[in-house]
Design a protein around this nucleic acid. Structure first.
Length: 769
RNA sequence: GCCGGAGUGGCGGAACAGGCAGACGCGUCGGUCUCAAACACCGAUGGGAGCAAUCCCGUGUGGGUUCGACCCCCUCCUCCGGCACCA
């Protein structure tokens, strides 16, 4: 929408032009999807069901409208979900502008109802960091809510209900020497005594004016103000002063805390500044707390002190006992608090799915009947953002009738957050043209849940959290039969601009794949993207090396293109392919001085046998790499196979081995470089299409080497290598290892203290030291 | 500040149930081809010593465990990501 405004065109045209462009781009890159299942979120045929879903949630009480302090992007002139406000700088996820707080009536989805179930990841094979991010975002804390009665002072505060606090450390209640309310707490005005009123009101006003960043700044000294009233500690009966301070947040817990300076760092700082008493009530057993010390963090071996009847209990016992006591007095009990907030989904923008609600003066807000869906987004709207939905100035859209009484009514003009569309799109893929509902239940059973989902980690607490919520809510409403949308998740890395920043037009560091495709061809670009580094890591873009991939594909072309007929080369005599004797490589094989072990092995096996071995080893290795998403090493192994084919030709490998190797190379390469492999496959007279052939299967016997190479170490340092038949006895291997002149040179004529022999891996000769 | 992830040649990166560090590719150097260049091909390429055989040093820092550590444990440093007074 913003881009369309910048260009002076309609968002629908801009969106559709982009869809066309991306389809074409994907096509040139050879991306192979089932295009018959394409869905477009801005198409009424899709958002009809987005609206339907909203109504299901509304009827179930999971969608509601409420006045609340919300995050507002002053540039986009729209509210944001808490998840869309990024980082300590608290910026808009879309444009990067710092957000501000506003009190507005908005639509929310009750994701908090699923907070506990969203913490259950037991069915998921997801990256640990994503699970941690979701866990932290949900932010579950167990503790207690405890009522502190207001102490009578003869004024009108006497009739005030007790003040409820939330704490995770009820065991420290005897250390509560003051109470703090958030400046926004509803009781502040009533509990402020007249003498203090002017100052308190000034403090509250100042707190409201401050941006959240300033307020949350850790650097700033804690501030607060005494409001003149007192509360009673429900267990000790102690009278403690009531303060307000902006370090207590209105939206978490109950918006009020008991101040326990001895055991909480923030309360400690606060007490120090305002000279409030600090009383230690928990200490490691047998240790006298040092009054000059700072706050004492929670430890496992701590016991309660100065805590009346609870003195002597362990901290864990104390927590249980004090909660029980408070509950018995009817003054609270166990409680759980969460950081996650309900999901704000309404947006004051044009380009989104309209929220299907109408407002009737007689019957209040009413859902649009399902048969009337979709509520169509009109095209002829002045969509410049003004802070209220542009739809408000569209008389035709606005006019509605009440579904209950038929009165004239007014349509909701806010549209839905784009993340509502993306929270369920994958469900529509199962039956994209289904008309009788959002999905065909039979297709749903066949396809869902998604077995492997790939995407960026930036969706951790956005799309991935919302989608889980949707599936659970729809399951509970009887629409789905599974608990999780995405069983396995893998995060790909992000390719950054050459300047190490995210690619963006404004930075001018965007790489356009079209130019590379035009220059090198799609297969080269695809292969290079796979080869550039680990798929899950990402990193700065550098085109260095794309030439190497291009050369590789050129070599494959040259190898596979002309059917090889009767190429004749000198063949070095193979050394007894059947039963080669064990031998030490260096020094003991005449003339083997400069020969690498691989070369020697090939020499012994014979070039045909060696090529077939490498071919079948490559099948296994590349298949495993693909399945593990290790594409960079898969490509390097394909390069090695192509090098081996070149060596085999050079050494006179027979045609059968060469042709098998080439066919295998093409088959393994086909997913990565679909175009060139298809063409070569056809040139070689193989049946169409290479992409419909069975995946090659490795023959274990062919993949097994006739000889294995064993490193020989002395004291952990490599000194020699042994080429032996796989079935050589351990005793023979150790005898050969010790017989090595290079090993002997490091033994100084003394017998070894020990020989560590890991069969098939290595031999380590340990000297007495 | 808290929670994650990562530090390997000139560069991208291999190798990680503890077992040959540097696969594969780029770049660089040398050579072949060419009138010349480009392309292509061949060879060399972690650092140091040596004519050589070979030896020493090397995976951010400093310790530790082990026959053996890029890998495990502890300390610190740097970079990237997330959260940010959540009581």
């Amino acid at each position: 929408e913003n881009a369309a405004i910048d260009r002076g065109i309609h968002p629908a045209d801009w969106t559709n032009a982009n869809i066309d462009r991306m389809r074409a781009q994907f096509r040139t890159m050879g991306a192979s999807w089932d295009w018959s299942r394409e869905v477009i979120a801005s198409d009424p045929a899709f958002y009809r069901w987005t609206q339907w879903l909203f109504l299901q949630l509304y009827r179930a009480g999971l969608a509601y409208k409420a006045m609340a302090p919300v995050d507002w992007c002053p540039k986009d002139m729209v509210v944001l979900a808490r998840e869309q406000v990024l980082g300590a700088e608290r910026t808009c996820w879309r444009c990067g502008t710092p957000v501000v707080k506003r009190d507005l009536e908005q639509w929310f989805l009750r994701i908090t109802r699923y907070a506990d179930e969203l913490l259950d990841f037991s069915q998921l094979d997801w990256p640990e960091p994503i699970l941690l991010m979701q866990t932290n975002w949900i932010g579950r804390s167990e503790g207690a809510e405890i009522d502190f009665p207001v102490a009578p002072n003869g004024a009108d505060t006497d009739a005030v209900a007790p003040i409820r606090v939330f704490t995770t450390r009820p065991d420290t209640i005897f250390g509560a020497t003051f109470m703090v309310l958030a400046p926004e707490h509803p009781l502040v005005a009533r509990l402020t005594i007249d003498d203090r009123r002017a100052e308190v009101e000034a403090y509250v006003a100042a707190a409201r004016r401050e941006t959240e960043i300033e307020r949350l700044s850790a650097e700033r000294e804690r501030s607060g103000i005494f409001i003149g009233s007192y509360a009673m500690n429900p267990l000790s009966g102690e009278r403690i002063p009531i303060w307000i301070a902006d370090y207590v947040l209105p939206g978490y817990g109950t918006g009020a805390i008991m101040g326990v300076p001895a055991h909480d760092e923030r309360d400690f700082d606060f007490a120090r500044r305002y000279e409030l008493p600090i009383r230690y009530v928990v200490a490691p057993r047998g240790v006298e707390p040092d009054p000059s010390a700072a706050f004492v963090a929670h430890t496992d071996d701590a016991v309660l002190i100065n805590s009346g009847a609870f003195t002597g209990m362990s901290a864990a016992e104390g927590i249980r006992a004090i909660i029980a006591q408070v509950a018995e007095q009817g003054m609270g009990g166990p409680a759980v608090s969460y950081k996650i907030r309900d999901w704000l989904v309404s947006r004051q923008r044009y380009w989104g799915a309209p929220i299907p609600i109408v407002y009737c003066d007689v019957h209040g807000p009413q859902p649009v009947p399902e048969l009337e869906l979709p509520v169509l987004l009109p095209r002829d709207v002045d969509f410049a953002p003004t802070g209220v939905s542009p739809l408000q100035s569209h008389a035709g859209f606005l006019a509605a009738t009440c579904p209950v009484g038929g009165e004239q009514a007014r349509r909701e003009t806010d549209t839905m957050d784009t993340f509502v569309d993306s929270s369920w799109y994958y469900l529509r893929y199962c039956s994209p043209r289904f008309e009788a509902g959002p999905w065909d239940p039979e297709a749903m059973r066949h396809w869902m849940p998604v077995n492997l989902y790939t995407g960026g980690a930036e969706h951790a607490v956005l799309h991935l959290l919302y989608s889980r919520f949707f599936v659970k809510a729809l399951r509970d409403l009887g629409h789905l039969e599974f608990d999780e949308p995405f069983m396995a998740l893998r995060n790909q890395g992000q390719i950054l601009g050459a300047d190490h920043h995210r690619m963006s037009k404004s930075r001018g560091n965007v790489v356009n794949p079209d130019e590379l495709v035009a220059r090198y061809g799609a297969d080269t670009v695809r292969l290079f993207l796979l080869f550039i580094g680990p798929w899950d890591q990402g990193g700065p873009w550098s085109p260095t090396g794309i030439e190497g991939v291009f050369r590789f594909l050129s070599r494959v072309w040259n190898l596979a293109q002309p059917p090889i007929t009767g190429s004749v080369r000198t063949v070095p005599a193979p050394i007894v392919p059947g039963m080669p004797p064990p031998r030490s490589i260096a020094g003991e094989i005449p003339g083997s001085g400069g020969t690498s072990a691989d070369d020697l092995l090939a020499l012994i096996e014979g070039s045909s046998r060696a090529l077939r071995r490498i071919t079948h080893q490559t099948i296994t290795a590349v298949t495993e790499d693909y399945e593990a998403l290790h594409f960079n090493t898969a490509v390097s192994k394909l390069m090695e196979l192509s090098n081996a084919i070149g060596d085999g030709l050079e050494a006179g490998a027979d045609d059968e081995a060469v042709q098998e190797a080439i066919d295998t190379l093409l088959l393994l390469l086909a997913p990565a470089a679909p175009h060139v492999t298809e063409e070569l496959w056809a040139h070689r007279g193989r049946p169409y299409s290479i992409h419909q052939q069975a995946w090659p299967v490795a023959d274990e016997n062919l993949a097994a080497a006739d000889l294995i190479e064993l490193p020989i170490q002395v004291d952990g340092k490599l000194r020699d290598r042994l080429l032996v038949a796989p079935d050589t006895s351990e005793a023979d291997i150790e005898r050969l290892a010790l017989a090595s002149v290079r090993v002997q040179a490091h033994l100084d004529g003394k017998p070894p203290a020990r020989v560590v022999h890991i069969p098939g891996r290595l031999v380590n000769v340990v000297t007495a030291r």
